[in-house]
């Protein structure tokens, strides 16, 4: 019997390892491919005789140098960073007080408003981009970075409110009661007590908003037509391509540089985002 059990466990373990291996390769391969491509010399890269999985010639930094020296990549990084900071600021200023008010001040129907706001997150850019392109034009923002700075909070605010509502709900009500008995007004209690103890929730919103800004594609593609005003997410896949010629080496280097930091940041805060999506369905 013991042997049978052991054999069964061994088989289970083998399946486990195989499953993990398969998915790791299938999901991670493109990133490995970005790394390999970024540092290969062109003669190596475009020689069909060479084994493409390894460096057949010495690795090179020429693609990375090219990327920073000859393309708008650095500019796009700066644009993305700037837009990200602006969008994060707008989102925090509007979403934090709103989420607090809807969880604590407005009573029962605050929760309903919260759900309604969350549902607007489901309305996709591909439904709104046509009318929005007109609104952006009316505001005189077409082909500027400001167009996306104004529009992005329309989807970062709803999800941030939703995340923060879950967070604020977990703060014991008695803490705020105590602060008010101790001499603060409700609004002061929000500023001096609720915000300091919600730092990690607010940080989650910051990271989340920032990653959304880097991931967005449709609005930036629609509203901005000059390469120099673009963000990384559109600039790299659209404007690093000259005609039909792809500079694959520098293109992949750009992908790598823009994807990895976001990936690492996001990973650190992952559990919180998931909590945001699954509120209510996991106990």
């Amino acid at each position: 019997m013991a042997v049978g059990l052991k054999a069964r466990q061994g088989f289970g373990r083998a399946v486990h390892v195989l499953v993990l291996l398969f998915f790791s390769v299938a999901l991670g391969f493109p990133f490995y491919w970005m790394v390999i491509t970024s540092f290969k010399q062109n003669p190596d890269l475009y020689n069909l005789k060479n084994n493409p999985f390894i460096f057949n010639m010495k690795p090179t930094l020429e693609h990375v140098t090219f990327l920073f020296r000859e393309t708008l990549f650095l500019r796009w990084l700066g644009n993305t960073l700037f837009a990200g900071i602006c969008v994060v600021t707008i989102t925090l200023l509007l979403a934090v007080p709103a989420a607090y008010a809807l969880t604590r001040i407005t009573g029962r129907w605050g929760g309903h408003v919260g759900i309604a706001i969350f549902l607007t997150y489901l309305v996709p850019p591909t439904l709104l981009f046509i009318p929005l392109s007109r609104i952006v034009a009316l505001l005189g923002l077409q082909d500027t970075l400001w167009s996306i700075i104004v529009v992005y909070p329309s989807f970062t605010i709803p999800f941030s409110i939703w995340l923060l509502m879950g967070f604020f709900k977990s703060i014991p009500r008695e803490l705020e009661d105590a602060a008010m008995v101790d001499g603060l007004t409700r609004f002061q209690a929000f500023l001096k007590l609720v915000i300091p103890i919600s730092v990690s929730g607010i940080l989650t919103v910051v990271i989340f908003t920032f990653t959304l800004v880097t991931q967005e594609f449709v609005y930036a593609l629609t509203f901005i037509s000059s390469a120099s005003h673009q963000t990384v997410g559109v600039g790299v896949p659209i404007y690093l391509v000259r005609g039909d010629v792809y500079y694959w080496g520098s293109l992949m280097a750009a992908c790598l540089i823009s994807a990895l930091p976001i990936g690492i940041l996001y990973n650190l805060f992952l559990d919180r985002f998931i909590a945001g999506f699954t509120v209510g369905s996991v106990k």
Binding site: L20, F23, S24, L27, G28, F29, P30, F31, W33, M34, T37, T211, T214, Q215, F217, V232, G233, V234, V236, P237, Y246, W248, L251, M252, A254, C255, S258, A259, L260, I262, G263, I264, Y266, N267, L270
Partner: peptide, 24 residues
């Protein structure tokens, strides 16, 4: 680490991931 690796396709900007595939 495996979790991080497996998450990358979601957290990397989708346009960037797609251009990686375009090359593959």
């Amino acid at each position: 680490f495996v979790r991080f690796l497996i998450l990358l396709p979601w957290v990397a900007p989708v346009s960037i991931g797609s251009i990686g595939w375009k090359w593959i």
